[in-house]
Design a protein around this nucleic acid. Structure first.
Length: 815
RNA sequence: GCCGGGAUGGCGGAACUGGUAGACGCGCCAGACUCAAAAUCUGGUGAGGGUAACCUCGUGGGAGUUCGAUUCUCCCUCUCGGCACCA
């Protein structure tokens, strides 16, 4: 072996071996336990960033470890290739999005290979390829037939200058990022997927997803937001049609002092015809952002429509206001307002001088201070007619029953979750497979005409989707009646592609169906790894899609991902690495200078996967130094300076073996259960420090050194596979380390005769005692009380209690 | 605004089930090697006090539970992620 560690040679050799013997190509093998490990595939933005390196290192470490544990491991890789950045690049560099994307993929694939990740490259897929998206189009037509895909109007950001729809990130301070024009909200017809039909199952199954972080499950539960409430129909003065609202607090019904409807609500629009102030307000609301954060934080404003709603019990008239915080798309586009018992209603009522009527008081009759804020807790009803004196809980049922009898309301389960809008008015996405016929309406594209191919060779001049201006794309005939018709020119949300790629990896080359029986061998994914930023949207959509595929008979499981690991972000100087902040570090430079193993080791050592990782140049140096130190230790062992002797220090040898096997035990737990590779590496570093001090050149001593070094190489192999490949051979093994088994703990090496216990007095550390492992409690107590420094702290006090924690400590309680 | 995290030496982090706070690494200091430097090796390194043995303080801030709290409970501050068209 080479005396010096030369990472580039070592890595080239190992990678050639893996590729020559197709080490990571897998097929279904019913005789072995399968293990499907998947890291979230990247958007091909140009080159890998540190977040990718971290994500894929974690996935590769898990995969290689499971392989060493004897599993049949599938680890695939692909490209989330549709999306907005390709269009932006097209405008900026005059290059078609397809060309830009494919070139990025070529470059990034080579980067992934250089990092030594053990992917089965045969299964690589790119979502922008028609062979991929055709099956998504196919499934969509099935869902359309089942009524799970439908069209309705929904708001988008509209730039009146560019005549185009903008993504949220293209809106800066309410203005178009390109031309600075004030952006408007516009309602346009769009396609939706009925995820709300699956809300209950998506929620209920979270309880069984024990391999997911509780944090993510909580976020999804809140996102789905199940609540039980009452749908109430208020009358509207002077008309037969009422105004429906949903409330989770029907007990506050007698405190309603106004109603609020969305600016686009039919009642508001109608009233605006006679009310210029209202019309101006509605016009103004069009420039309002569509995202929830903006709506929640903006100033709450409204205008009286002049219309009056009739209270379902009292018949009392309350004003109907139009308010900017009520959105047409959600629920009924109207809410009842109870200022005394809802903080937002309270602030709105204060601002516009609307009445605040208390109808709930606390159970303990304590004052509520309505001059300061709303009283939002539950309590006892007052000023509520025949419901007075009931608790909020009793009143909920009584009021709901009473409303139901008159058919003016009913109990309903409501979800915060809204149906998934999948239409995008953009070019670089999968075409929605629908043909709009003047007489037949929306007609799905027949199977034999799929895929609807997205033209790739397009000129991108400025704004707007090219296919909306290409008659050769959109002009067609109706599959049903044959008349001239137009294709849908909107494309799918890119979350569609990322919602099922994990399944397609199993049936990657199947050209006669979306999936096949191989999916049932591999699924569910045993370990999914990705950023916490995907905790809700991507992970919820993928779960939904899995259930859609299950109900279409394509998969047998209920959930796609059995275990989830959410990795933290990569930071530099405490801030997220980004081009705009100018604090990026290019992983390529790191690999060029130190090699892939140092990059991987640094990523795994610096912090545990779930935490954020702060970049550090000197940390990289440290990782590199460790690999050199490891290399040198093996080299010195393989090329000893002197002949092996016979003079063995058996006690030092026993101690060394005990350290080794304690290390194996602890590192195994870190890999298997905790995913804390930072502590696993730290333990191996400690062992290596001990091995440097272990200078026994007897043949027994050398045998222990050989045993330890073999274990060290095996324990590090998932993290630094190239250097492990080289050292494994240097240690005289036949066969590659990638095919070796994880080391086993020798229980007999762990046995100890004496152990040290800590002695505390009143919880403070005062001394240490050494006892036999099997010493009885009475002996331990006596020794502890006799300890010199302990004596000093108890001599003038009386011992109240002695607590002995076996194997750990003694606490003497004195008073 | 709402939902979910996080906060421990000069820095990244460790302490797994309520039981020795600071493992391991970085940085820094000292020494060895060297003509010298780099590299490498050895030792030290939370703060304060003490010649020393040791003592006091210390895990964002404040309270509480406990023989014992970084760990559990409550309140607060700061910070990060998500909020449905960035992926």
């Amino acid at each position: 072996m080479d005396e010096h560690y030369r990472p580039h040679d070592v890595e080239k050799t190992a990678q050639s071996y893996w590729s020559e013997y197709q080490v990571f190509a897998v097929t279904e093998d019913p005789s072995k336990e399968k293990y499907y490990c998947l890291a979230m595939f990247p958007y091909p933005s140009g080159k890998l960033h540190m977040g990718h390196v971290r994500n894929y290192t974690i996935g590769d470490v898990i995969s290689r470890f499971q392989r060493m544990c004897g599993k049949n491991v599938l680890q695939p890789m692909g490209w989330d290739a549709f999306g907005l950045p390709a269009e932006n690049a097209a405008i900026k560099h005059q290059v078609p999005p397809a060309k830009w994307t494919y070139e990025n993929i070529t470059y990034m694939r080579q980067q992934l290979k250089r990092l030594g990740f053990g992917y089965d490259w045969d299964r690589e897929l790119a979502t922008c390829r028609p062979e991929y998206y055709r099956w998504e189009q196919w499934l969509f037509t099935r869902l359309f037939a089942k009524g799970l895909a439908y069209k309705k109007t929904s708001p988008v950001n509209w730039c009146p200058e560019d005549q185009t729809v903008l993504a949220n990130e293209q809106v800066e301070n309410g203005c178009c990022w390109r031309c600075g024009t004030t952006v408007e909200r516009r309602e346009i017809p769009q396609w939706f997927m009925k995820i709300t039909d699956y809300a209950e199952e998506l929620l209920a199954e979270l309880d069984r997803l024990e391999g997911w972080p509780e944090q993510v499950r909580a976020m999804q539960r809140n996102w789905i937001g199940k609540s039980r409430g009452v749908e109430i129909e208020f009358g509207v003065a002077g008309r037969t049609q009422g105004l429906k609202v949903f409330t989770t607090r029907p007990d506050t019904l007698f405190g309603v002092s106004y109603m609020a409807v969305a600016p686009e609500h039919p009642l508001a629009l109608e009233a605006a015809a006679r009310n210029p102030a209202l019309a101006d307000f509605i016009e103004e609301c069009k420039t309002m952002a569509v995202n929830e954060a903006a709506i929640e934080t903006m100033e709450k404003r409204g205008v009286d429509t002049g219309l009056r709603a009739l209270h379902p019990f009292t018949g009392v008239e309350v004003p109907i206001w139009s308010a900017n915080f009520v959105l047409m798309g959600y629920g009924e586009g109207a809410v009842m307002a109870v200022p005394a018992h809802d903080q937002r209603d309270y602030e709105f009522a204060r601002k516009y001088g609307l009445p605040i009527k208390q109808v709930i008081h606390p159970r303990d009759e304590s004052p509520v201070g309505l001059d300061q804020q709303a009283f939002t807790e539950k309590g006892i009803l007052q000023a509520s007619g025949s419901f007075d004196g009931m608790t909020s809980e009793q009143a909920f049922e009584a009021i709901a029953d009473s409303l139901a009898q008159d058919k003016r309301g009913q109990v309903r389960i409501n979800y915060r979750l809204r149906d998934w809008g999948v239409s995008r008015q953009r070019y670089w996405g999968a075409p929605i497979p629908i043909i709009n016929c003047p007489s037949c309406g929306a007609v799905p594209v027949p199977d034999n005409e799929l895929p609807v191919r997205l033209p790739e060779d397009v000129a991108f001049e400025g704004v707007g989707s090219p296919i909306k201006k290409m008659p050769e794309f959109y002009q067609t005939s109706c599959p049903r009646c044959g008349a001239a018709a137009e294709r849908e020119t909107d494309t799918f949300d890119t979350f569609m592609e990322s919602s099922w790629y994990y399944a397609r990896f199993c049936s990657y080359d199947q050209d006669r169906g979306m999936l096949d029986e191989r999916a049932n061998y591999w699924l569910p994914v045993d370990q999914y790894v990705g950023g916490i930023e995907h905790a809700v949207l991507h992970l919820l959509y993928a779960r939904f899609f899995h259930k859609l595929m299950r109900d279409a008979g394509l998969v047998q499981t209920n959930e796609p991902f059995a275990n989830l690991l959410t990795q933290g972000m990569v930071l530099k100087d405490g801030a997220k690495m980004s081009k705009s902040k100018g604090n990026t570090v290019d992983p390529q430079a790191l690999v060029d200078e130190y090699g892939a193993d140092t990059a991987r080791l640094f990523m795994m050592f610096t912090s545990p996967p779930e935490q954020s990782l702060d970049w550090s140049d000197s940390g990289v140096e440290g990782a590199f130094r460790f690999l050199k130190r490891l290399w040198r230790l093996v080299h010195e062992h393989v090329h000893p300076a002197q002949q092996a002797g016979t003079d063995a220090d058996m006690q030092a040898i026993r101690e060394m073996r005990r350290l080794l096997h304690e290390c194996i035990r602890s590192v195994t737990v870190d890999y298997q259960r905790r995913f804390t590779y930072n502590t696993a590496i730290a333990k191996v570093m400690e062992l290596i420090n001990a091995l440097y001090k272990f200078q026994d050149v007897s043949s027994t001593g050398r045998a222990v050194m050989q045993e330890a070094l073999q274990a060290v190489v095996l324990m590090l192999a998932p993290i630094v596979p190239h250097v492990a490949h080289a050292l494994w051979q240097a240690l005289g093994n036949t066969g590659a380390v990638v095919d070796a088994s994880w080391p086993v703990v020798d229980e007999s090496a762990l046995a100890r005769e004496r152990i040290e216990l800590v002695v505390q007095v009143n919880g403070k550390l005062r001394g240490r005692i050494e006892v036999a492992v099997d010493a009885p409690t009475s002996t331990i107590e006596a020794l502890a009380l006799a300890e010199e420094n302990v004596q000093r702290h108890i001599v003038d006090k009386s011992v109240k209690k002695v607590i002995v924690v076996p194997g750990k400590l003694v606490n003497v309680v004195v008073g």
